[in-house]
Design a protein around this nucleic acid. Sequence first.
DNA 1: AGTCAACTGTCAGTGGCTGACACTAGTCTC
DNA 2: GAGACTAGTGTCAGCCACTGACAGTTGACT
Lengths: 218, 218
Amino acid sequence: MTEGQPSAALPTGLRERKKRRTRDALLVAALELFTAHGYEETTVDEIADAVEVSQRTFFRYFPGKEAAVFAVQDMVESHFLSELRQRPADEAPFEAMRRAVLCAWDSIGQTVEAIIPVELHMRAYRMIESTPSLLAAHLRRGIVLENRITELIAGREGLDPARDPRPRVAVAAFSGVMRAAGQLWGQRGDGGMESLRALTETHLDALAPALSERWRTP
Amino acid sequence: MTEGQPSAALPTGLRERKKRRTRDALLVAALELFTAHGYEETTVDEIADAVEVSQRTFFRYFPGKEAAVFAVQDMVESHFLSELRQRPADEAPFEAMRRAVLCAWDSIGQTVEAIIPVELHMRAYRMIESTPSLLAAHLRRGIVLENRITELIAGREGLDPARDPRPRVAVAAFSGVMRAAGQLWGQRGDGGMESLRALTETHLDALAPALSERWRTP
DNA sequence: AGTCAACTGTCAGTGGCTGACACTAGTCTC
DNA sequence: GAGACTAGTGTCAGCCACTGACAGTTGACT
C-alpha cells in the first residue's frame, strides 16, 4: 500500500534486501537513462538490461515506465503532507501551506539522498517539466495531491469542502502558483534548491496583491 | 496549422468536403464509443471500423487517440482567447479573464452544435475528468493555454512575464480555480451549462477573500 | 483525356504492457 | 540439515497504440 516510498524501513531477511536492491537499482538506472537519452527515447528493455533483469521484472516493481520517474516525488509529497498536518491550528490556511512547503524542503534532503543523488533528482524534475507526457502525468498527480490538501485544510478549519468553496479555491490557487514557480525554475537552466526556494517565495507573495488591483506603473 | 478546428471554413471542392465528412464522422464515432464503453476500453480499430475506414486513416486525421477527445475543446479555447483579446483595456486582468470565459460560453453553443451534439460534448467532458490518462492530457493542455493567456495578459499591461511574476501568478490562480469548478461540476453528475456557469462564478468570487483572511465562523 | 497530386489501404514492425506457466531460490518446519 | 512451501523471476505469447514504406485509387487541373 505504501508503495510510494522505495525502501523506508530496514530490510529483515535476505529476500527483502535483494528486492530493495533491485528496486533501487532499477530506479537509479531508469532516471540515469531517462535524463541522459530522454524519456521517450529510453525503452524499458534498456533499463532492465542495465540492471540485468528481465523486462517483466521491471513491470513487477513499477506499474509502468512513468512510475519510475515519480517514485522520488512520492516521498517529497508525503513529507509535505505530514509537515502540513503539524502546522499550528491558528495559522491562516494559505500561510500554513506556504510554511509547510518550505519546511518540507528543509528536511527532505537526506532521505532522498539515501536512495538517489539529489542532483539526479533535480535533473529528473527538469526532465518532467520539459517532457510533454511526463508533464501531463505530473499535473494529474498534482490534482490528486490537491484533493488531499483540500481535505486537510477543510478539516483544520472545520468546513465541508463540498459546501464551502474556499478550501478548494485556496488550494487550487496555491498549487497553481507553486506550479508556475516550478515551471519557471525549470526553464531557467540554472540554479539549485535555493533558487527554487526563492522563486517560490516571491511567487506566493505576489499572489494576493496581483488579484484585485490594476498593475499599471509598477 | 489551424488543425484544432474541425471544419471551420466552407468546403471548396469535393475532395475537401469528403475529407471533412470523414473527419467529423471519425470524431463523432470516437466520442460516441468513448462515452459509451469508456476511453481505455475503446480501440482505434473499433472507431475506424464504425466509419468504415482503415486504422491508418484514423491516424492521418488525428495524431493519436487522445486528439479526438480534445478536438472540440480546441474550438472552445480559441474562442475564449479571441474573447479575451477583445476585452477593454481598462479592465483589471482578473476581471477580464472572468468576463472572457463567461462571454465565450454564451457564444460558443451553435459553433459546437454544427459538429457534434452539445450533450455529447458534455458527456465527453465528464469522461475527461474521470479518466486518469485523459485528465492528465487535459491538464497539460491547460498549461499550454495558461502560457498563452499569460502572454496576452502581460501584453495588455505592458509587462514582461519573465521579469514580473504577476501575470503568471494571476493566470495560474485563475486557471486553478476554473479547474476546481470544472472538477466539482463533473463530480456532481447533474446539471448542464447553466450550473457550470453558476459554479464558476461562485468559485471565482470566492478567491480573493479566501486568500488572506481566516475563515472560522463563516 | 491525361497527368499530377492527394487520400487511402495494406503490411510489417516497434514499444509499452499483461497473463500464463515453469523454474529458481529464500524461508520455514521438523 | 533435508524437504516442503512460496515469493520472485524469466520466458513466451499476445494486445494495442502508433509509424514508415509502398502501392492503388480518386479528385483536381490543364
